[in-house]
Amino acid sequence: METKAAVLSDSEKTWLSKIGANPSLIALIVLVVFFSFLNPRFFTLSNLFNILDLASLLVITSLSLAFILMMGSIDLSVEGVVGLCSVVASLLVKNFSNSNDFGFLALVICGLVGAGFGFLNGFILSRFKIPSFMVTLGIGYITTGLGVLITRGNPVVITDWNFRLLSLGKIGFLPFPFILALGLFFIIWFISEKTAFGRYVLALGGDETIVQDLGIPTSKIKTEAFLIGGILYGIVGALLTARLGSGDITAPLGFTFDSIGACVLGGIAITGGVGNVPRAIIGAFILTVLRNGMVLMGVSPYVQQGIIGVILIATVALTIDRKKIKIMK
């Protein structure tokens, strides 16, 4: 019997089916077409670049949630960690409150701070066997509290214009944050598809017991996944400060909901074990396009949120794996 030589045909598969020509991608295209018809200003170069810029931060946080959701966990600490890192960044670069001037080093330090809290998330989860829902919620509160403590509740205004280029600068026509997001996307995608660690993350979401029984160190994997998430949040925090020109603990409000929503809309199951990194990105763009489109249509922000909520519930209802959760609490 001839060996299935088609083994190698995987590389011949079109890029479309590699991402998984899936409903989400089609939904995104439909949305773009839809909004283009409704409002001529939508499909202009300047608006499209605007979308890329707006989506950047969401893309990065969604990368983290993608990993964590595929693993079967959840991360509710996004806002807290991003906010704290945003505050930290603002205090490290030239600002009105102190005499620090770390410049771009602040980005690195933010990454480290985020990594620290990410590590805490993973460590407490695996060591003390507390559900990720609880751990990350707690860490979220702690980080928000720390942020308020450090700034005494007031935003810290920065004066380092070079630092602000991180978010306001462009390379050619492309906004810098988008390029950064793109770069991070490729890195995370690579880790997910091409490393044993990335594969284990997905396996854990499938059936943790089986993975454990094979002697694979599940605690280590969970900790590392959350650690990576933390680094991403740190970077977003720095970018946020650069964009706003100040470190505001309340700025990332809604990031958690949006990041999880983006993953779900892209087709990553909230029950774990299903999905891949590109889907999170598609989801992030769906969300951004939705918002942008609705703004251009003049829809009130409150109605926008409601519409997004309805779409999310519908998506989860369609993608949830009911066999895994027998009793809905």
Partner: peptide
């Protein structure tokens, strides 16, 4: 069964 349905055969 000790196989993961959400992953590929070779994995």
């Amino acid at each position: 069964q000790a196989v993961l349905p959400n992953m590929r055969v070779y994995e």
